[in-house]
């Protein structure tokens, strides 16, 4: 039984109503938990309902059968689009979510961490999409979250930079005892960063596997796990879900 500081997600069914008054079930029988300091990857192909699942976890979608138990504390989130307020500077976009008096130092520290400290006084329209996503990541980290939710964190980032950045965030997550939940369609990224990989697939989407990644990430164990997962779940081997690094 996980403690109060764990994240527990149990979705019996999640359906969307259709104009024909019937409902379309998109998620079924998904159950996983995440402990403090764990990095959990939700791996599935595009359109498999990962974002819907994350919206449920974030409490933005409450129409489903099941329950989500969040640990006490704050949430940090990076959506697929950066969702920066275009009328606020980069620094003010971080200040927006901070309530304490040490905001200035915290903002500088977080922007430094994601490598956009020089753009603090710029408007979001003056940033590239990749930079904007990094600002969104800095904003999520600035609140010192207990649960950090990232939706496709590598999208629109240079592959090498994205991997390095998320690895840095994952390391921070483990150090601070935060829970990091990230959705991705990239098996290699999941293998590189996550402690556990929840494989999502099927119609409706169900949890196909909950796989632990060995703490010692040497090339041999990662490649063996990769081969096993691709053999078991054919769709993970498609071009969309796996690209050689």
């Amino acid at each position: 039984m996980p403690g109060d500081d764990a994240l527990e997600v149990l979705i019996a069914t999640k359906a969307f109503a259709l104009p024909t008054r019937t409902s379309h079930i998109v998620l079924r029988d998904i159950h996983f938990t995440a402990l403090p300091g764990q990095v959990v990857a939700l791996l599935g192909r595009s359109g498999s309902g990962k974002s819907t699942l994350l919206r449920i976890v974030l409490g933005l979608d409450t129409v489903f059968e099941g329950r989500v138990r969040m640990p006490p504390g704050r949430l940090g989130v990076v959506f697929q689009d950066p969702r920066l307020l275009p009328w606020l500077t980069v620094a003010d976009n971080l200040r927006l979510v901070l309530v304490d008096g040490a905001a200035k130092t915290r903002i500088e520290e977080m922007l430094e961490l994601v490598g956009v400290a020089d753009a603090a006084n710029h408007l979001p329209s003056e940033l590239s999409l990749g930079m904007a996503r990094r600002v969104a990541l800095a904003r999520a980290l600035a609140v010192d979250p207990n649960v950090l939710v990232l939706d496709e964190p590598f999208a629109s980032l240079d592959r090498q930079l994205g991997t390095m950045l998320v690895a840095k965030v994952a390391e921070r997550t483990r150090r601070t005892g935060c829970i990091m939940l990230f959705a991705t369609h990239d098996l290699d990224h999941a293998l590189m960063v996550a402690d556990r990989i929840c494989v999502l697939g099927g119609h409706p989407t169900t949890l196909k596997a909950d796989v632990a990644v060995p703490a010692q990430r040497n090339a041999g164990t990662i490649e063996r796990l990769r081969t096993e997962l691709v053999a078991q779940f054919r769709f993970l081997g498609s071009e969309e879900t796996a690209q050689p690094l």
Binding site: L58, L60, R74, L75, R83, L96
Partner: peptide, 8 residues
């Protein structure tokens, strides 16, 4: 959504 998640 942003307001809700960050409890502004």
């Amino acid at each position: 959504d942003l307001e809700t998640v960050y409890r502004l």
